[in-house]
């Protein structure tokens, strides 16, 4: 039995919001009988984009990822309380029956991801249901996927074992796995959101002129053990990414012959640009 999953790739997303707007367009003013009541004109976005900013000028990084109903397999929104209202379909999609849901504001709080929205005007809880009405009519993917210019979002229909293999193969992450909800939305290159970087610039002064130093080795050590190493680029910059948070350790700048040119200890709880590290010579 194959089921729907959505894979989002942080590294491919240009943050154009086409996915957000295509989804909004689908539900704005539209009633799909048995599937959904119209979305409110303004206010809630059932699929939206989050932004993550790391570091500071001049070394920083900004990335984005979508948040929406995670189509959980172990969905807290589905319980005795929502029986006959919120359903897990055989293809993995979680839907809210708009007629049965009328007046059920109490269901909003059952989603730990905050993805059930209350439509005040129509008195109905709403969320993104994978464009189920389109999928059932034969469309091969939800609108957010079609609208995406970079293939940052993919819809795949796989059996669970294959999906699990793919997820481990490509290091796909889930949002708040600790909640145990078994989401069907997966995130590739999610380190850019969850991990930290540590960067700096190696410079030296010769004859009163300061210059960036290219090509020296920088080592990052934790508890005295080398965790990672890299070389500075033409701007003297180095950057260690995918660091866990928080982390403490030391940095060493080394000459080609292994001579220690500079060393410093660090302790970070979020991404950090250390600024200039001056070396002699």
């Amino acid at each position: 039995m194959t089921k729907w999953n959505l894979i989002f790739d942080v590294a491919r997303c240009n943050s154009c919001n086409n996915c957000v707007l295509a989804t909004k367009d689908e539900y704005l003013f539209n009633r799909f009988d048995g599937y959904s009541e119209p979305a409110p004109r303004l206010g809630d976005l059932w699929l939206t984009l989050q932004r993550k900013e790391r570091g500071k000028a001049p070394m920083m990084d900004v990335s984005h990822y979508i948040t929406t109903c995670q189509q959980c397999d172990n969905a807290p929104c589905i319980s005795e309380r929502s029986k006959g209202v919120i359903t897990k379909r055989a293809d993995g999609i979680v839907t809210i029956d708009p007629a049965a849901a009328n007046g059920r504001k109490d269901l909003v709080e059952t989603c730990p991801y905050g993805q059930i929205f209350w439509n005040e005007e129509l008195q109905v809880p709403q969320k993104w249901s994978f464009d189920a009405h389109l999928i059932d009519a034969g469309r091969k993917e939800p609108r957010c996927v079609t609208a995406c210019p970079t293939r940052a979002i993919e819809a795949v229909k796989l059996d669970d074992a294959k999906m699990a293999a793919l997820a481990s193969d490509q290091d796909l992450q889930q949002l708040n796995p600790e909640l145990g909800t078994k989401p069907r939305i997966w995130y590739r290159n999610f380190d850019r959101v969850t991990a930290n970087f540590l960067g700096g610039t190696v410079v030296r002064v010769r004859d009163g002129i300061e210059d960036n130093v290219e090509g020296v080795e920088v080592r990052l050590a934790v508890n005295g053990e080398v965790h990672a190493s890299c070389r500075t680029d033409i701007y003297g910059d180095f950057r260690f990414d995918q660091l866990p948070a928080p982390i403490e350790g030391s940095l060493q700048v080394l000459a080609d012959d292994g001579r220690l040119l500079a060393a410093l200890d660090f302790q970070i709880t979020e991404s950090r640009y250390l600024g200039i590290i001056e070396i002699d010579a």
């Binding site: 919001n17 086409n18 707007l21 909004k24 367009d25 704005l28 003013f29 004109r41 609208a147 293939r151």
Partner: peptide, 19 residues
């Protein structure tokens, strides 16, 4: 290139401004 027209976000918001 992909075989579709990759539009700008402002194109996908037009329905909301028509109405």
């Amino acid at each position: 290139p992909q075989r579709k027209g990759c539009v700008a976000p402002h194109s996908l918001t037009l329905k909301s401004t028509v109405y």
